[in-house]
Amino acid sequence: MSTHPINDLDELTHQRVRLGVLALLSKVGELEFTRIRDDLGTTDGNLSRHLTALSGAGLVTIRKTSRDTERSGARSWISLSPTGAQALRKEVAALRALFAHVPTEGTAGAPETA
């Protein structure tokens, strides 16, 4: 029995910030915490929560380093794990499959032309 593609969406990765984190990390080695925060337009606390969830599921790796300057503290560098890369690919494939099932803008309800 076939299931609707909406069932292939993963609850963990489908959340907006988490999906954004995975997408940002997909083509680079590591991104610093504040870089991700600024690119996604979120807050420290919100991003921390989502990174904890992603890290707990083994989708991202968090590496902490200290800076030499006095004014700045430790920095966190985030990278995508192989499991995370696979999860992102699955999510995008599920989204594509889902969109293939629904009418795109401009076609919904449009009369057919000869």
Binding site: A23, L24, K27, V28, R35, D39, V92, R96, F99
Partner: peptide, 12 residues
């Protein structure tokens, strides 16, 4: 949405 993800991944 998929296009947005692609753009986001190219940003860094």
């Amino acid at each position: 949405l998929v296009d947005d993800l692609e753009r986001l991944s190219n940003r860094p």
